[in-house]
Design a binder for these strands. Structure first.
Lengths: 195, 195
DNA sequence: CGCTTAACGCAAATAATTTGTGTTAAGGTC
DNA sequence: GACCTTAACACAAATTATTTGCGTTAAGCG
């Protein structure tokens, strides 16, 4: 005896979401990111502005939602045979995605949205991919850092430099981060607790 | 024979800036952060909205500017006698500043402003303090990591967790980060290049 | 099939932002 | 210290964005 409590996901709602997402993507390939407006997206998608405001709140939230949606379909990171190269491959790919002008604007939107769900979705994308890589390493019998350690050691510094220093790390710096993460495990340095 | 190119810092401009900054601070202690508006600040400070828009661009930029200004007057981090405790003391203080609800909102504003100067000012605050600590260690003859390494190892992970995981690290996790940064230097692990 | 209501469209009302024009005064020159 | 030049500001009108009230559509469910 379930009470009426459903959030509607099918039919019209799905159509609206699809139309809006596609409109954003289309506009983004034509116009500059910060020349976009909610009314603009509304017109392009054939939806009323008020619908967008009620559903997404504001422009950064909408753009963040769209961006994260378009990021998920990517399949698992490629298996290059070793933990070290898996991580370097992934780190470089992630840098390409987030270090570009558009990717950086997207990161800003995610943060600016102020929505817990959105920011955590963003963090989870990286964590999921890292989890796959770590799992692979364990299956090979290789010692591997935890996902949290990799986030702290690679994702966080990369993201910080992009958002605050406004200059993505070089590939060399990135690889050095990976090396440092792995060195701890090959030299037997004990790890302190994670919070 | 200098061409007319001066940005005006004195007199009226300074008065306006002071009035606006104080208005923001006053409103922030009364109202919720995201109930603030530019016209609201304008009225409180006795300045026209258009002045604020022309000078700061938008609300996040203004709030970020105010927040960073109120962060600088803090004197140098306390000298606790050792690099390890200096860093832990600083890390904890920095966490207090940025991990609170208001501090987090400020970080978001800094990022959302999208202004290079603002984000780098924010990063420089941490870097300057860290530089003081590192310098002290060297004067004592202690081996110390570079400022960049400390940013990557402490500030970046802390900031990432605050902004994306929406949950500041615990003090224990923070101290563990410090320990990891320092371990590298006491165990003689070579460092790869910074980008 | 029929009920309930989430999600939407529409349009009016409100609020924010931009822009044009005139004024004030900072910073430099002689 | 009188005299420019123009950055920074005030004011108000115009534009644009956002919110809100209310009627309509159709998703989810029995």
């Amino acid at each position: 005896m379930k009470v009426h409590k459903g959030i509607r996901t099918g039919g019209r709602s799905a159509r609206v979401q699809k139309a809006v997402h596609e409109a954003v993507h289309a506009l983004l390939s034509t116009h500059d990111r910060d020349s976009l407006t909610v009314p603009m997206v509304a017109q392009m998608s054939g939806v009323t502005p008020s619908t967008i405001y009620r559903r997404w709140g504001d422009l950064p939230s909408l753009l963040a939602d769209v961006a994260l949606d378009r990021m998920r379909p990517d399949e698992d990171p490629v298996d290059t045979g070793s933990l070290d190269s898996d991580l370097k491959q992934f780190a470089e790919a992630y840098l390409d995605e987030t270090g570009s002008e558009l990717g950086t604007a997207m990161l800003r939107d995610v943060v600016a949205s102020g929505d817990n769900g959105t920011t955590m979705r963003c963090a989870d994308i990286a964590r999921c991919r890292l989890a796959v890589i770590v799992e692979r390493a364990k299956e090979r019998g290789q010692p591997a850092p935890t996902v949290d350690q990799l986030v702290d050691g690679i994702i966080a510094p990369m993201t910080y430099r992009i958002l605050f220093d406004r200059q993505p790390p070089t590939t060399d710096a990135l690889f050095a981060m990976v090396d440092r993460c792995l060195l701890r495990h090959t030299t037997g340095i004990s790890e302190a607790g994670q919070g």
